[in-house]
Design a binder for these strands. Structure first.
Length: 559
RNA sequence: GGCCCCGUCGUCUAGUCAGGCCUAGGACACCGGAUUUUCGAUCCGAUAACAGGGGUUCGAAUCCCCUCGGGGUCACCA
């Protein structure tokens, strides 16, 4: 890509997008001071990092970096009682792997610590008390059964469900009595019903809701813990978040949050609701629970199968949830961060009508919210692989080797840790493989270079070796090169050509037979390179073996 | 069902706000061909889309209206 040109194009786009920011509600300028852009990604610690969530995180990160701002990681664990290391580990791991550094959050803290909602209870309680005092929230003693009944009734009458607000009728003394009794209750926000809620979303434009149609949301549970919609509002304001960039499924949470912000007297953050990442070939939200269904998609299945094959060899098979919906899958199967990042970026964002390849640095320079696409983007594994392929081809040999070595180690193909000889030999193999390596784990496809036993592709064996005259030809060539002292690509080739000429045979016949006999498969680097990598002793042995093998097999009828 | 969002090649997208430069451009996949006596990569080429219907206009993918379709969300989940 022409960086300069692309950059200029980006600048132009931004100029054109400025009118959006000239609206007072979206303006970054407050008085004379430019507010630093602050974005956040607030995952719930679930034990894995969803690829769609990663895309949302990337957009947040890019917007912060693009503006020289701050990216915050906050953990929304208001409803989690699980082991935090297990639940959060994979999420942080994904960020680290991709190089998406956070400026404030877990492990590093920051000026608005703590960054775990479970540790911020005081903040929420204080805010809830304030709303209670100001009559903007109320204690609701209604039972779940009662609420359910109201809901059903509303549905039956085909009208929107609205909170009955019976608890509002309670006198102060009754409330005190209930409280002393320890009667279970929640705190609900009193929705101001006679107003519209309006936001100017960076992606969607103006979106409106009628507050008169909204039920009073619970903001504090019976046990005194906050609900997501409430905690988010408190945290976003306290952490000075300027842009709330999140997936579209949160759009319906927005009116509640806006109302809460208003009740608290907060300055509204700007909103950007980006489309969710959809299932391959579909429009539904990509979900880890629908893997079986996604396997019907050819390219998704291809990726899954690749993963299965690799994980079996490196002892990761059966690991729960290691699938293409999770970021960790890509790391484990040998993708490059650059490939994933490029793919994620282009899933719902474009610069122009032709640029496809972006490094992270490019993306930081060029990313703007106005270029985010409105419609959900179906996840396309094939395209992900093609970005990966591009970035893998850019990678220097030494780094490719470093990336491949662990796969060979775990598969037991080389020593662990690798010996200098292992490293040197692997480098030769990777160099010969060239751009055939798309994923680091692809090196496992050439196990025949690393061990004595080989597996024949039977179909190819039958086609290329089990034919009249071929074994003899191969045996003859074997003896010819066995006598050759200096094995080089040139010498092996010259020997083959002259031998075939003497025997009045087409070189192709021998070339194919040679390849199958020494590697077992019909694909790979140049034949002579393969022979060299297999090594003198093993190559000669394998040729003998193949010739013998044919004599034990019935020859196909000669046409 | 209510509320909200979305609708351009199979897929990701450009073009829509400021109508003509669009007989709709690029990329991935697919199919052909060249090259490589393999595979891959590379190069060349082909197929392929404005959801539908009405308007407005000299002119509509673009503006207006209606219809249809898809999706999100409706919790003491996040």
């Amino acid at each position: 890509m022409n960086h300069r040109a692309a950059h200029d194009a980006g600048e132009l786009r931004r100029e054109r997008s400025w009118p959006l920011s000239s609206r007072p509600d979206l303006n970054l300028w407050r008085g004379n001071v430019t507010m630093t852009v602050r974005t956040r990604f607030a995952p719930s610690p679930t034990g894995y990092m969803h690829i769609g969530g990663m895309r949302t995180a990337l957009f947040n990160w890019l917007w912060a970096r693009h503006n020289g701002g701050t990216f915050i990681l906050r953990i929304d664990d208001t409803d989690q009682q699980r082991n935090m290391d297990e639940a959060l580990g994979p999420i942080l791991r994904a960020f680290k792997w991709l190089g998406l550094t956070w400026d404030e959050g877990p492990e590093i803290g920051g000026p608005y610590a703590p960054y775990f909602q479970s540790q911020r209870g005081e903040l929420y309680r204080a805010a809830a008390d304030r709303l209670l005092r100001e009559g903007k929230a109320y204690r609701c003693f209604e039972t779940k059964e009662q609420i359910d009944e109201d809901r059903k009734l509303a549905e039956a009458e085909k009208r929107p469900y609205l909170s009955a607000r019976r608890s509002l009728q309670l006198s102060e003394s009754e409330i005190q009595k209930f409280l002393v009794e320890g009667r279970p209750h929640v705190i609900r926000f009193l929705v101001p019903r006679n107003q519209m809620v309006v936001i100017d979303d960076h992606i969607r434009g103006r979106v409106e809701w009628d507050a008169g149609l909204m039920a009073d949301p619970v903001i504090m549970r019976g046990d005194g813990s906050p609900l997501y919609n409430f905690a988010t509002v408190i945290d976003d304001t306290q952490m000075q978040i300027t842009h709330v960039i999140r997936a579209e499924e949160h759009l319906s949470n927005t009116p509640t949050q806006v109302l809460l912000h208003q009740a608290l007297g907060n300055t509204l953050p700007q909103f950007a609701h980006i489309p969710y990442v959809a299932a391959p070939g579909g429009k539904e939200k990509l979900s880890k629970r629908k893997l079986a269904q996604y396997r019907n998609n050819a390219s998704f299945k291809k990726l899954c199968d690749k993963g299965d094959a690799v994980f079996t060899q490196i002892g990761l098979s059966g690991q729960a949830g290691l699938d293409p919906v999770m970021v960790e899958f890509y790391e484990r199967v040998g993708f490059l961060p650059a490939g994933i990042l490029n793919g994620l970026l282009r899933l719902g964002w474009s610069l122009d009508d032709k640029t496809e390849i972006f490094s992270l640095d490019d993306a930081v320079k060029l990313f703007t919210l106005d270029r985010v696409v409105k419609a959900p983007a179906g996840f396309d594994p094939d395209k992900m692989v093609s970005y990966q392929q591009h970035w893998m081809m850019q990678l220097p040999l030494a780094e490719k080797v470093a990336g491949c070595l662990p796969y060979l180690e775990k598969a037991g193909l080389i020593a662990s840790p690798p010996t200098p000889e292992n490293r040197e030999f692997t480098a030769r193999v990777i160099a010969a493989l060239g751009d055939r390596i798309r994923l680091f784990s692809d090196v496992l496809d050439v196990a025949y270079f690393f061990r004595d036993e080989i597996t024949y592709d039977e179909k190819e064996f039958a086609k290329r070796l089990a034919k009249e005259g071929v074994p003899a030809l191969l045996a003859g060539y074997r003896d010819r090169i066995a006598a050759l002292l200096d094995w080089t690509v040139e010498n092996l080739e010259a020997a083959l050509k002259s031998y075939c000429e003497e025997q009045s045979q087409s070189p192709g016949t021998l070339i194919h037979a040679l390849r199958i006999s020494t590697t077992g498969v019909p694909i790979g680097p140049g034949v002579y390179e393969c022979v060299l990598l297999v090594g003198r002793e093993r190559a000669l042995t394998r040729m003998d073996q193949a010739v013998q093998r044919v004599s034990h097999q019935p020859l196909p009828p000669n046409p």
